[in-house]
Amino acid sequence: MRRLIGGLVLAGLAAAGAGWLLTAPDRLPEGSFAGVEGDAERGARVFTAAGCASCHHAPEAEGEARLVLAGGQRFASDFGTFLAPNISPDPGQGIGGWSQEEFANAVMRGVAPGGAHLYPAFPYTAYARMDDRDLVDLWAYMQTLPASDTPSQPHELGFPFNIRRGLGLWKLLYFDDGWVMDDAEGQELVRGRYLVEALAHCAECHTPRDALGGLDTGRWLTGAPNPNGRGTIPGLTPDHLSWEASDIAYYLETGFTPEFDSVGGHMVEVVENFASLAPEDRAAVAAYLKALPDGGAME
């Protein structure tokens, strides 16, 4: 009996050790951005395309106050409610004490400076495709923003979703920094893919998810239930969105649809972001959406 119990204990310890290794954070190689100087002016455009302020400004902030990334907005989901953290340059409550490398690991790998996994409510699975130069420029720009000493609020999650280490298994299942549209040809389509799949992270809202919250890439951008439980988010594939490319580009600039309706909800801020980008960027997004297959299956 003692041998049996001893064997079970050893097997349990071995399983726990294997699980601990499997769920360990995966960081970028050390020195990935060494010697690269960021350009804050270029970083401002990356910041806008990535929609950083849209999620991280304080609730109800307007105008220039939206550049104070104090956090606090609430995002409901099937797993609980996530609260956007303070990512202003404040060294105590924000990310002002982080290094560029720590920032890169958070944005592109979902790993906090202390090694904890970040929840994928933060779209690092999309930002993982970000160009290294854009990452460095974004970091440079964020250092120029106003600081806020507003403390970040904890997420409101129940068991087992409040166990961050389990996100290591989630990443093994769903973290993939490859392109969904892997055969993009031509400069415009490549740029559109970069904006849609990486910076603007459109799939985070417009692609359905499975029971564990992973994106169903076989139904890429075909629409999804609204995480807050109210209504649905429309599909963007040609079988769901019949607009001409010029209509899509115009909508991203003005918020007006071909049916003379206007943008609403969270898309208001998305359109405001895209309206600040170059016309070529809006045209590239439109080209990408028109190139999608019906049903969203890329293979």
Rank of each mutant, 00 (worst) to 15 (best):
C52L: 02
A245Q: 11
M267I: 01
G35K: 02
T254W: 01
G166V: 07
L4M: 15
L289S: 10
E269I: 11
L195F: 03
A104D: 07
S88H: 08
E156V: 10
E41D: 13
V268N: 00
P258Q: 10
L13G: 13
S88A: 11
P89D: 09
H155S: 06
N228K: 15
G264F: 13
I95K: 06
D39L: 10
A278C: 13
E269C: 06
N273T: 07
D90P: 00
G214K: 10
D294G: 13
D261Q: 15
E37G: 04
T222P: 07
Q73S: 05
G51S: 02
Y251I: 07
S276D: 14
Q143N: 12
Q153Y: 05
L277M: 14
L252P: 10
F260Q: 15
T125L: 12
Q187S: 14
P238Q: 03
T48L: 04
V9L: 15
P113F: 12
G229R: 02
L169W: 09
F33V: 02
N105A: 00
L138S: 00
L138H: 02
S152T: 09
G51L: 01
F33Y: 13
E204V: 03
A297R: 08
H155M: 08
G51C: 03
P120H: 08
A58H: 11
A283Q: 12
G43K: 01
S54D: 14
E272Q: 12
A184N: 07
E253G: 12
I95G: 06
Y250C: 01
N162T: 12
S54A: 07
A76D: 11
N228A: 15
N86C: 12
A211D: 14
E272R: 15
S242H: 14
P91K: 09
D261L: 14
D281H: 00
N162H: 08
G96I: 01
A14D: 10
P25S: 09
P154E: 13
G31Q: 04
G72D: 08
G72E: 10
L167Y: 01
H155C: 08
G71F: 07
L252W: 01
V268W: 03
G158N: 13
R209K: 15
A203C: 03
E280T: 15
H201Y: 09
A76S: 12
R230T: 14
L69N: 04
W20Q: 02
A58Y: 12
D149P: 04
D26V: 07
D132T: 04
A184Y: 12
P208H: 02
A203Q: 02
M298G: 06
I163W: 08
G158S: 11
V111E: 07
T23R: 06
I95P: 05
F260P: 01
L189F: 13
S99E: 08
G255P: 12
A203T: 03
Q153L: 15
A116R: 11
R191W: 07
A224R: 02
Y174R: 05
P25T: 00
A76R: 06
